[in-house]
Computed example of a mutant assay.
Amino acid sequence: MKTTIAYLATATALVALATAAQAQDKKTLAIVVKGLDNPFFEQINLGCQKWMSENADSEYQCLYTGPASSADEAGEVQIVDDLLTSGVAAIAISPSNAPAMANRVREIAPDVPVMTIDADFLEADRDLRTTYLGTDNYLMGVKMAEEAAKLKPEGGTVCLQLGNVAADNINARAQGFRDTAGGAEGIERLAGEGGWTEIEGCPVFTNDQADLANQQMADTFIANPDLDAFILVGGWAQFAPQAYSQVTDQVMDKLNSKELIIIAGDTLPPQTQAFRDGRSHAQVGQRPFEMGYKAPDVMIQLIEGQTVEDPLYTGLDVCNQDDPGFCKDN
């Protein structure tokens, strides 16, 4: 029932925005994210709004939308369906469930440019989109493994915290971590390679929910008092700073001594604060604002038939104890 209400509210908002765009004789460049409840995606929205403010006289408008909850995979597919059916000039999609989204886009066979942003389709479905704009997610996982190796050169026991099971970007990060930590390509699960072993019960999947992410961390720390490393492949737990502080309070002695290390994805303000407070040892950050700011121009280039590179990577920011870098003042 909650999902239905949330979808209806989103659909109503979409209709209102589309009507407003028609009244202004504007063509819509849509950005559809996994969920409006995730602060990471709000940075994409801010980038979209920045583009709007700088292009007030453009014939295009940037529309940022998505399901109310990041757990509503079906809702995101329905929103994309509605937008493509009602008519948009181009669309950028961050698919939560990559196979399900690709199946629907293939069924619709839209005649407008489709690109992905933040998260990509699976390799077999990439013919459906013209380009991908966002992070090199495999490289992000590589960077996380490199930071872990600096702190634990002999390896140790590790738990990976992932998002949605079918999220291509998160799975790519996990693969980058495993391959780099284990010293070989295609490792499905670390079982001693490079000195690293994934513990029983891990990886854990948050479904992009901050409360569940923090509960998983707490449960893992209690059940595995000798754990060497916890890797937040995405920043979910840190998006709820009070809960994250309460969880890490229980292991601060271990964090301070580096008996237990935490490496986390993303560098939003509550996350850089957690890093400065010693509640993580390294952060590997994406650039979501840049994604939202660049996406409208990329879509316009696609509409105009220009050649666009594929993929379009937006870079990474790495913070660690030797070089706080981006996390020092943000």
Rank of each mutant, 00 (worst) to 15 (best):
G186D: 13
A100P: 00
L122C: 04
F121I: 10
M252Y: 08
C202E: 02
A109R: 09
V308T: 09
I222G: 03
A229Y: 03
Y313T: 06
Y60C: 09
G134D: 02
L160A: 04
L151E: 12
C159E: 11
R126V: 01
P153G: 00
N171H: 04
A6R: 11
T131Q: 00
L84R: 03
I231A: 03
F326M: 15
C202I: 02
F41S: 04
G194D: 11
A145T: 01
V15N: 01
I222F: 09
D297Y: 04
L14H: 08
F41P: 00
L36G: 01
I262Q: 06
C48I: 11
T19H: 11
T220H: 04
D211M: 05
K34T: 13
E259C: 01
E185P: 12
V88E: 10
Y244T: 11
G305F: 11
C319Y: 05
V251Q: 10
P296D: 02
P269G: 08
M144V: 03
N207E: 14
T272A: 07
A295Q: 01
A102H: 10
I44M: 09
N55Q: 01
S53F: 14
A119K: 00
I231L: 07
L232H: 10
D111Q: 15
D57F: 02
Q215P: 02
G194V: 13
K328T: 11
T267H: 03
N320W: 09
A148C: 06
V32T: 10
M115R: 05
V15C: 04
E123R: 03
A6H: 11
M291P: 07
P67I: 14
P296V: 07
F289G: 00
S245Y: 14
E304G: 11
I79E: 07
Q238A: 08
T130L: 10
F239V: 00
F221L: 14
M101H: 07
E290N: 06
S58A: 02
A145F: 08
K34L: 13
G325T: 11
I44P: 00
L162Y: 08
A92S: 13
T3M: 14
N97C: 07
Y60I: 12
T28Q: 15
K27V: 04
V142L: 12
D136N: 15
D219H: 04
G163E: 08
A172N: 05
V165E: 14
F177Q: 05
